[in-house]
Amino acid sequence: MNKTLALLTAASLFAGANAEDKIVIKGSDTLGAKMVPQLAEAYKEAGNEVSFEIAAEGSSTAFTHLQASPADIGMSSRNIKDSETEAFTAKGMEIKGWTAAYDMIGVIVNEKNGVEELTTEQIEGIFTGDITDWSEVGGDAGPISVYTRNTSSGTYKSFQEMAMNKRDYGSDTQKMAGNTQIADEVSKNGNGIGYVGLAYTEADGIKAVEVDGVELKSKNAKTYPIARSLHYYTVKGKLSEAATKFLAWATTDDKAKEIVERVGFIPAE
């Protein structure tokens, strides 16, 4: 709440200084919490004289806002719904999506484990504690040891949302401090399973399973189920010049990619 307030205040101050070069970005909290503000900051540091107004109140607000003022940018952590596209069409506008970044989490097992593939339903079952033995998911018999991040981690929450239908973790899960600890335990425990960010799946002794038949590779970011693409949305032909320039920079510049990676996402492309 306070953050939004501060941003609004800051934005309105800038607005007074230079009204024509203001870029308004609204929508998803996932993008708007860290990534976009940091990109905006870096963009200004790179010598571009613009001001930003960023409001992160949920993906849906991106579309309602774009309908009212088509010159701006919308942020969304999900694809646009059909009904939303229709609303734009009804107003004679055409909406265009840009991939801002990808968000991917690998499910890892011990490299000696025979299980190569899990479905999202099985993953939900394993992490919520409904499935407790490897034989239930096509492996050799053995009790599953589940390693998760601890409750303060952001991945803990986003995995819950993406792979567990927002259900709570089973009480048998062990809470580890970080990606490395999870990878370590899984590499030493033949019956272990855990999840780590893409960058940690290369560690020794573990392998990432295919989820719903899709391998965990950055090139599969679009189809991998425990991943989502994060989008910018704009209205075709109505985007302001400053916003066009910023979008091009944010999706292609190396510095921008670096920021995207730093906040834990995979750069687009």
Partner: peptide
Amino acid sequence: YSSANIAYFAEVNRTSRVEDTILRSYRS
């Protein structure tokens, strides 16, 4: 349900024990 399910798979996997051992050894 889960206990019954594990019991079922234990019974099914019993028959392919030799093959599964070979595969496990191979992976190891």
